[in-house]
Amino acid sequence: MAGESGKIDPMHQFQIEPLAQLNIAGYDVSFTNSSLFMILVLGALWLFMWGGMKRDLVPGRWQMAVEGVTGFVNNMLTSSVGPEGKKYVPLVFSLFMFILMANFMGMMPFGIVPGVHPFTVTSHLTITAVLAVISFGTVLIVGFWKHGLHFFSLFVPHGTPWWLLWLIPLIELFSFLIRPFSLALRLFVAMTAGHVLMKVLAGFVINGLNAEAAWVPLVVSIPSFILMIGITLLELLVCAIQAYVFALLTSLYINDAVNLH
């Protein structure tokens, strides 16, 4: 966290550090702290789901939680796509849970163990871009698979006046093509900004406590600390909202591909 100069660098938390060197076909695919946290997310998600696999007729608390999440994703797809949306529940559920768990994993207070830093997988553009491409690619594949070239009628909404036919499809095409970028950037920026803000506030608290003047902790550290509690809670909310937004937009885009407006 602390740089060489003794200052707190809020960007250091996003640094990827190789833990084990690995080279495949000339590509550097080292096992990094990012990979480690992805594995942790996988483990946490698997554990969470495993707890809900008891399949009791009357669910316990854990099973209730798992069924609540699956029912939530199921509802989201049935309400935005219709009965055909059931087919896409595994994909949207995987996206939603991976993003949610990764966001929360980055918020875990692992930092209280010296030398351990939590890492937010979803604060990396490379990760969010792949997730967005998965989402967008599904839309493209489903759209062309179901409708063939008729899928392009998506760019001509119903009721377009004939004299606007040269403009509307261009705008629609542009808004369609920008979807993967907005999906990727929204998640990346939200997670990065939140974590930078928390780290900056934490820097205020610590640097204030280390200051020589006695009034500084009182004026800087305590208000920063109180603010940080609020920001942390807000950031937890953002973690859930960003996962929800990603899953909701994916299901809306799948709706476009399945039902063509």
Binding site: V29, L42, M97, V121, I127, L131
Partner: peptide, 26 residues
């Protein structure tokens, strides 16, 4: 390369074992 590689492994595992394995049972 490392990010893509590990993400595809992890997300593939999530999609196939959890999304297609555990979710339908639940």
């Amino acid at each position: 390369a490392s990010q893509f590689f590990w993400l595809l492994i992890v997300f593939g595992l999530i999609y196939f074992t959890i999304g297609h394995g555990m979710l339908p049972k639940i």
